[in-house]
Nucleic acid binder design. Structure first.
Length: 111
DNA sequence: ATACTGACACGGG
DNA sequence: CCCCGTGCCAGTA
């Protein structure tokens, strides 16, 4: 699954959103797949799932509060700073060769 | 095969 | 700010 590969490419000290990863994986809009992929095989895969956050940098995982806190700890340990309950996307969002959300959807209209 | 669910995103109220 | 509906893909009953 490309999702795993994409997540593994997230550099340390950076984070990416589910939607962003879905796009990089070639499935724009399929943000749910990313979450599904993680929860499905995260514990048995060397995937830095903690670097994946919801839109706006907010930690999603609500089913297991333990994990949400753990994710935050791991991120902070890598140097990622938070602003309230969210990651400072303005500084720590992984741009992966893409541009900021300013002109993102243009790549979708490739033809 | 269909129906429901799920670590989501985005627009509208 | 919160809540609701819809689109998306894959897995499970």
């Amino acid at each position: 699954m490309k999702v795993y590969g994409t997540v593994r490419r997230i550099p340390m000290g950076k984070v990416a959103t589910y939607g962003q990863i879905a796009r990089l994986a070639g499935k724009p809009g399929a943000a749910r797949m990313v979450g599904w992929a993680m929860s499905s095989s995260s514990p048995r895969n060397p995937v830095p799932w903690h670097r994946v956050v919801g839109a706006g940098g907010r930690i999603i995982i609500s089913k297991a509060l333990t994990y949400s806190e753990m994710q935050r700890q791991l991120l902070q340990r890598e140097g990622v700073q938070f602003r309230g309950d969210r990651v400072r996307m303005d500084e720590f969002q992984w741009k992966a060769g893409l541009e900021p959300k300013s002109s993102r959807k243009k790549k979708l209209s490739k033809r």
